[in-house]
Design a protein around this nucleic acid. Sequence first.
DNA 1: ATACTTACTTACATAAAGTAAGTTAATTAT
DNA 2: ATAATTAACTTACTTTATGTAAGTAAGTAT
Lengths: 109, 109
Amino acid sequence: MVDTNICPKFEKALSILNKRWTALIVFQLLNGSQRFCNIESGIGISGRVLSERLKDLEKEGIVKRTVFDETPVRIEYTLTEKGKALEPILKQIQSWSDKWIETDDQTVV
Amino acid sequence: MVDTNICPKFEKALSILNKRWTALIVFQLLNGSQRFCNIESGIGISGRVLSERLKDLEKEGIVKRTVFDETPVRIEYTLTEKGKALEPILKQIQSWSDKWIETDDQTVV
DNA sequence: ATACTTACTTACATAAAGTAAGTTAATTAT
DNA sequence: ATAATTAACTTACTTTATGTAAGTAAGTAT
């Protein structure tokens, strides 16, 4: 990447949030801990990419993976404090979309 | 895409903002109108993708392209009201990154 | 034993982004 | 007058990211 004069922290944040699905995964987890297959079906992401994203988000300290040693084993993904702190961003996106995005109601008759 | 229970306006907003470079372009234009090459060098995007993104953003009504018929012709890109309204989102991202992203100061000696 | 579920991974196909060179039109430098 | 430079792109080609589908391992239900 080329040298820019933009704050590196901000750029880092964008490089995380910019990635496809990241925001939706976080949005989904704001409703509470969820299992792999629930996130998968909840937002319509493929398992391949979800697996990849969850690893990234774990590495960034945004998501925590917890294994419950029941039988069968249960694995849950939860937002960390850092992850929960993303809520105001998503809220802002929501209110922007409410104000500025039109629903092109494509109801086929 | 698979059917989800997420608000379509919100999904639409994310599909715009999620795209690589979109947020940085808007961020750059919050400083005022800019020319193609200034955005290009300002954020380190390639001309190919910048051209593509500006067209997308124009289509979404976020950016306005203005041709000044001087010689040589000058073309400026400006945020519309809809585009300016994205500022609070970027501000939120900024404050999140200030609080949660660490600078891994990789100063090579 | 067979089928089903969860949480993945692997292999392969398609779409998006990066790189570099080319285009057009006008401008300035020699 | 010719050559080089700048702005705003486009085109061709390569690399990376994402999607699709099938496979795996461990356990459960019938």
